[in-house]
Simulated scan of single mutants.
Amino acid sequence: MADDRLAALTAAGVSIWLDDLSRGRLVSGDLRRLIDDKHVVGVTSNPTTFAAALAHGEVYTPQIRELARRGATVEEAVRMLTVVDAQEACDLFRGAWEASDGVDGRVSLEVNPELAGNCEATVLEAVSLMRAVGRPNLYVKIPATRASLPAVTEALALGVDINVTLIFSVERYREVMAAYLAGLERALDAGVPLSGVHSVASFFVSRVDAEVDKRLEEIGSDDALALRGMAGLANSRLAHQAFRETFAGPRWERLVAKGARVQRPLWASTGVKNPAYPDTMYVTGLAVPGTVNTMPEATLSAFADHGSLRRADNGEAVTGRAAEAREVIDAIAATGVDLAGAFTVLERDGVDRFIRSWVELHETVGRSMEAATG
């Protein structure tokens, strides 16, 4: 039945990606098993998952010792550790990448989050990561801060495949898609074949519910409390409506004629934060063809065990509920919740969280290198 449920999700046009990458998964064969048995066709990583893996992963010790022996700096060591993981994962997914004509079989690796406000440095880092990994199925992740959007356009114009991450609002999502279209147009002007330019836009779900629920509970009225757990799905459904509107019309048709591909929506943060909510709600409620759902393993296992598509096999869970989603968002705003403020907090905290994890990652590697040299 697990295979049946995950196979049905795949058949519904949803690409199943794992939201976790570590050397332990690679060495143990766990990632290979998820690919073979659980229909996983991609993996995402970020500084937080790498920091956790390094802190509790002795499988990194031999490489850390070798890097310390060679006199590598901490920065160089972090780069090599993460690059090796990305290379090995890319190799595991190469078959899925080839079978899907480059759409799936992807591995995402984040730029240094401390560069989020520096366009030039972000682009240089994106190109450097692409060259260091040296695999065609790598996605470089760039956060969707307004200051970073020009870097998204520039990197795409250079032929770097980009996963734009930390998107919380529909307004910012529209800006991300505009940056993608501008990148395609610049790539076209530079003679880059558009058929080889790929991107996904990572729209976060459960973190929206966590922040909005907190604000609804602070208001405390019956109307406010009745809307808990509804913002994440409604916001995402409106984002998909924006996606359908953007990838249509003359501008997009001109790019399609030159081989352009859509920037697929990727539902991120799909593990529930509130245990009172159904543990598969962000999978079942957002199953629509042409999207990616990147899940923590607990969510993947939950859907394999008892997930249901309901109406989602033809996308109606999303495309058929845009009007309802707008009513939910309007009702939340009517209670007094400042949704724009909530999205601003979520973006700022998301970047800050990655920066803290980045610092922690370097500190962990530094301590390990010191221990390795006695």
Rank of each mutant, 00 (worst) to 15 (best):
Arg215Gly: 05
Arg215Met: 04
Arg215Cys: 03
Leu216Pro: 06
Leu216Asn: 12
Glu217Trp: 03
Glu217Gly: 08
Glu217His: 05
Glu217Leu: 14
Glu218Val: 10
Glu218Gln: 13
Gly220Val: 12
Gly220Phe: 12
Gly220Pro: 12
Ser221Tyr: 06
Ser221Ile: 12
Ser221Asp: 10
Asp222Gly: 03
Asp222Lys: 14
Asp222Arg: 15
Asp222Thr: 12
Asp223Ala: 15
Asp223Arg: 14
Asp223His: 12
Ala224Arg: 07
Ala224Tyr: 11
Ala226Glu: 10
Ala226Arg: 15
Ala226Phe: 09
Leu227Cys: 03
Leu227Val: 06
Leu227Met: 05
Leu227Pro: 02
Arg228Asn: 12
Gly229Lys: 01
Met230Leu: 14
Met230Lys: 15
Met230Val: 03
Ala231Asp: 00
Gly232Leu: 00
Gly232Ile: 01
Leu233Ile: 13
Leu233Gln: 06
Leu233Arg: 07
Asn235Lys: 01
Asn235Gln: 11
Ser236Leu: 07
Arg237Phe: 04
Arg237Asp: 01
Arg237Val: 07
Arg237Ile: 04
Arg237Thr: 05
Arg237Trp: 02
Leu238Pro: 00
Leu238Asn: 02
Leu238Trp: 00
Leu238Tyr: 02
Ala239Tyr: 04
His240Val: 05
Gln241Met: 05
Gln241Lys: 08
Ala242Phe: 13
Phe243Val: 03
Phe243Pro: 01
Phe243Gly: 09
Arg244Lys: 14
Glu245Thr: 05
Glu245Ala: 11
Glu245Trp: 08
Glu245Phe: 06
Glu245Gln: 13
Glu245Leu: 11
Thr246Tyr: 06
Thr246Gly: 02
Thr246Pro: 03
Phe247Tyr: 15
Phe247Val: 06
Phe247Ser: 02
Ala248Gly: 05
Gly249Met: 07
Gly249Trp: 06
Gly249Ile: 01
Gly249Pro: 02
Pro250Met: 10
Arg251His: 10
Arg251Glu: 08
Arg251Asn: 03
Arg251Ile: 08
Trp252Pro: 09
Trp252Glu: 09
Glu253Thr: 09
Glu253Trp: 03
Glu253Asn: 10
Arg254Phe: 05
Leu255Ser: 13
Leu255Asn: 02
